[in-house]
Design a protein around this nucleic acid. Structure first.
Length: 639
RNA sequence: GCCGGCGUAGCUCAGUGGUCAGAGCAGCUGUUUUGUAAACAGCGGGUCGUGGGUUCGACUCCCUCCGCCGGCUCCA
């Protein structure tokens, strides 16, 4: 059973690779099934709580949900058993889904009579605008709009047994044809996504065509939990949190710090290769700075305030751009010296709401590889191109490229007033970024309304073990902040012109990046990032063995390797197991054989091992090879 | 922040009103001197997250706070 540890993770990886890419191409049948299950669940809920008021209930992701308001009562997970039982009864009854249409005014009357105020609101929106506002509904809940009409005249309903629901469909033919399902969780969800509106309970289920598919999905979730970075962070002793230090403030252990340091070094090298200049700034600044930048107003609640005894009010920096502008502003600038590329790896602080904090995904203090390029408009395209290349190469090297999607975040044309800056600048900037995205075949999705206040951006989005998306690398164009700070350079016609600012990050925050790295590799880091690269295991505790191991260790350290000796009084098998669980890339057993021959037989961590491994080689040769790989920062082994 | 859930040893967990508590792993000590995924034995370790309440009696029931988890909202 050599595969007891690795097997499930490989399974998961394959599952994720096959399922994450095709989530859009979900079969219509499955979607109809899931959507039908939402109705069946609502049927069951209505039986148990007759006063239940319903919001929306679409098929989504791997299953379905329904938003429900029970008034005084609440649904908790304890209720799942009886809800599922009631659902099974409805399924067993095999009630047909019957479609009907009625004029919208009649539908409104119906919903009022049925005491379904949320449905009434939806219907009124449909009647007034022909659609419900702002994409807050998933497909399947809208009414029918007559051809060539802008407003809805008729809406469709689906009925099964006692339960009737406003719904566009489609559904399966009858409640008996819905495959396998399981209720998963209940969560709060604001009506129409608005925190000022009532909060409903969102009841989630997963559903698949067959029991086997469902089991596979549930098994996959179990495997995903095993590679959760919070769990592995503890198991591999990478970071911790302390109630005394505070939530959202990760503490990196020596092993975790190794990964950060190695990543920092890799980025520093990239910076040197691309003429970036490292700067360094203090971690707080006068509130005034952020009033000027606009952050104080827009992100008031997220600022950590620091009071001086001498009556200045300071703020822990939530971003670095304002500081960087002041370095730029320290002396007059000529068009000749642009672009100026300031970078630094530094911690920033945001007073996140308690509910947002979790693991390394969202922390209150986090280290960013932040950078700001000041350049001319005619330099934007070149600068952005180089950044795309750097980002692509960096993620490729870590085998992360491909598990992502790219957002070309542009203005929402419906709300031009929500942005600052000259629309002509915007047009140009958006076009430049789009061109770069096309040139580098990023497959970027144009996301209207996702632009920053000050400019369009390209965001690189990745998924964690459970499929939740997170932004890492980003390239943002900014015409506004230089103007707010009155930055200029002298153009060749001797005119003072504001520069363009490009905010950029390659790995985003180290916290998030490490989260992704842990979950992607399940803690099996490439050699150059592995906190411990070589472990020497002694066969016994006799002086000759221990001394020999110490000699190898010293050589390894001299070569810059991170190595350790395990000469504890345990069996070789147990020590091997410990090394494998610690995910150490190379394990070397040292005993009489090695002492006599001067050769070792490295045991290679299972994910890196290939056919033909297991040959013996001289100690020096082995160590030099590993050291070479570590230095080259490669992800695959060749020993 | 909001809704729901959870909080017993370093870790994973058992123990639902009645000797203020157990197991495995980890740790320590001893025996063993071990050859590629778990040797054997012994020992130490918990004011059952915190504060309050109910009760003759609370890890067990109720409330406050702290923290964590899943969502929602937010994400410069």
């Amino acid at each position: 059973m050599i595969c007891e540890v690795i097997q499930p993770s490989l399974f998961l990886l394959i599952y994720l690779k096959t399922n994450m890419s095709d989530h859009k191409g979900k079969s219509g049948d499955l979607e109809a099934m899931r959507h039908s299950l939402a109705h069946i669940m609502a049927t069951a809920v209505q039986q148990i709580w007759p006063k239940a008021r319903f919001g929306v209930g679409p098929a989504v992701g791997d299953g379905f949900y329904y938003d429900i308001d029970l008034g005084e009562a609440t649904i908790s997970e304890e209720d799942f058993g009886k809800i599922e039982a009631a659902m099974r009864k409805v399924i067993k009854a095999d009630q047909p889904f019957e479609r009907s249409e009625m004029p919208i005014d009649e539908a409104i009357e119906w919903s009022e009579k049925a005491a379904q105020p949320y449905k009434t609101e939806l219907l009124n929106d449909l009647k007034r605008a022909g659609t419900t506002a702002a994409g807050d509904l998933d497909p399947g809940e809208l009414g029918t709009i007559a051809e060539g009409e802008s407003k809805v005249d008729k809406v469709s309903f689906y009925r099964n047994g006692e339960f009737t629901d406003l719904c566009r469909g489609p559904h399966v033919a009858s409640t008996g044809k819905v495959g396998a399902f399981k209720l998963m969780r209940v969560a709060g969800a604001y009506w129409r996504g608005d925190e000022k509106r009532p909060q409903m309970q969102r009841l989630y289920g997963v559903a698949f065509a067959t029991e086997e598919d469902l089991d596979r999905h549930l098994k996959m979730l179990e495997e995903a939990k095993k590679r959760d970075h919070r769990r592995l962070g503890q198991e591999l002793d990478l970071f911790t949190f302390s109630d005394l230090v505070g939530p959202g403030l990760p503490l990196y252990t020596p092993k975790g710090a190794v990964i950060i340091e190695e990543l920092k070094n890799a980025l520093k090298e990239l910076g040197r290769d691309h003429d970036m200049q490292t700067v360094s700034i203090p971690h707080l600044a006068k509130l005034e700075l952020y009033k000027t930048s606009g952050h104080a107003e827009k992100f008031e609640d997220e600022l950590f305030r620091v009071k001086s005894h001498y009556d200045q009010e300071f703020v822990l920096k939530p971003v670095n751009c304002p500081h960087h502008t002041q370095i730029y502003a320290a002396r007059p600038r000529s068009y000749r010296e642009l672009p100026i590329r300031y970078v630094e790896q530094t911690m920033q602080y945001r007073d996140e709401k308690p509910g947002q904090i979790g693991g390394l995904q969202r922390t209150r203090g986090f280290t960013v590889d932040d950078g700001h390029t000041f350049c001319r408009v005619d330099q934007i395209e070149q600068e952005a191109s180089v950044l795309v290349e750097i980002i692509r190469d960096f993620y490729k090297r870590l085998d992360l490229w491909g598990d992502h999607w790219v957002s070309l975040s542009v203005r929402d044309p419906a709300t031009p007033d929500a942005y600052i800056g000259d629309p002509k600048d915007w047009d140009q900037a958006e076009k430049m970024l789009a061109d770069v995205a096309t040139e580098y075949k990023l497959g970027a999705k144009r996301m209207e309304g996702e632009a920053a206040l000050y400019g369009p951006k390209i965001d690189f989005m990745f998924k964690d073990a459970l499929g939740r998306e997170t932004q890492l690398a980003t390239i943002q164009l900014d015409f506004a902040m230089p103007k707010r700070f009155g930055l200029t350079y002298t153009d060749k016609d001797d005119k003072e012109v504001p520069p363009v600012m490009i905010h950029r990050a390659i790995l985003g925050s180290f916290e998030r990046f490490i989260m992704l790295l842990i979950e992607h590799t399940a803690g099996r880091f490439p050699i150059w990032l592995a906190p411990e690269q070589v472990r020497l295991i002694t066969v016994n505790q006799e002086a000759a063995t221990v001394d020999f191991a110490a000699g190898v260790l010293a050589k390894a350290k001299k070569l810059g390797l991170r190595a350790a000796v395990d000469n504890s009084n345990e069996s070789v098998g147990k020590k091997i197991r410990a090394a494998e669980l610690a995910k150490v890339p190379y394990t070397v057993v040292i005993g009489e054989k090695e002492i006599d021959s001067g050769e070792v037989t490295p045991r290679i961590r299972q994910d890196m091992a290939v056919q033909g491994d297991g040959r013996s080689l001289g100690v020096d040769e082995f160590l030099k090879t590993v050291a070479h790989e570590a230095k080259a920062r490669v992800t695959k082994t060749s020993v």
